[in-house]
């Protein structure tokens, strides 16, 4: 199933790219510098207020103009997902960092650590632990969202299903099968995230 592979590729690129961009934007949202804070905040609020399907469409037409040449379905979908999901990851990361008490920052500063080192050794490791369940949940959502790339004709898993359907004309069976596969993948991922949360709760 080439389609399932495309779905996974798109999801992995969206999650990793979205997370990297999300860390930068999330930290920007915490910056005291106005010229960093406002662009990051506008980015997040804007993207969270429009539907993903619109962003996919939009990038499909926008990216070729910016790049000066067509980049293909997959690349344009990947860019749209990275940018869109970054806004969600950014909020998870911002909340995670803010969940760490201010005293930790002060303690680290008082021993002479600077801001980047304090973030790297003290704040982020603790924040990450708090964020993992939300990050996993968001990743599950991304995997499901990749099916929206259907609209620009990308042959991901759902689209492959509908192509097979056009050939075989057994819609009910095919879409049920597609549904079961999505369910199995996403449900096992979210169970994993719940277990993680429970384990973390038990330690405290």
């Amino acid at each position: 199933m080439q389609g399932l592979l495309t779905t996974f590729q798109l999801a992995v690129i969206a999650i990793s790219g979205g997370m990297i961009l999300g860390v930068l934007v999330g930290m920007g949202r915490l910056s005291s510098r106005v010229c960093v804070y406002y662009p990051a905040t506008v980015f997040v609020n804007f993207l969270r207020s429009i539907p993903l399907i619109l962003v996919i469409f939009w990038f499909y037409f926008l990216v070729p103009i910016l790049a000066g040449r067509p980049l293909g379905d997959f690349l344009s979908a990947a860019i749209a997902f990275i940018v869109f999901e970054a806004s969600y990851f950014a909020e998870i990361i911002r909340a995670g960092i803010q969940s760490i008490p201010k005293g930790q920052l002060q303690a680290a500063y008082s021993t002479g650590l600077n801001y980047p080192k304090t973030m790297r050794y003290i704040i982020i490791p603790q924040a990450l632990k708090n964020m993992i369940p939300s990050l996993l949940t968001q990743s599950v959502i991304i995997l499901q969202d990749t099916s929206l790339a259907y609209v620009i004709g990308l042959k991901e898993f759902l689209r492959s299903g509908s192509i097979v359907d056009a050939r075989e004309v057994r819609s009910l069976e095919i879409y049920t099968f597609v549904g079961i596969v999505y369910f199995l993948i996403c449900f096992s991922m979210s169970t994993l995230s719940k277990r993680w949360e429970a384990k973390k709760g038990a330690v405290r």
């Binding site: 008490p101 005293g103 303690a107 680290a108 500063y109 008082s110 021993t111 003290i122 603790q126």
Partner: peptide
Amino acid sequence: RQKIGMVFQRFELY
């Protein structure tokens, strides 16, 4: 700050 050590009310260990 490297010259000045500080101890907090709520410890603030990592």
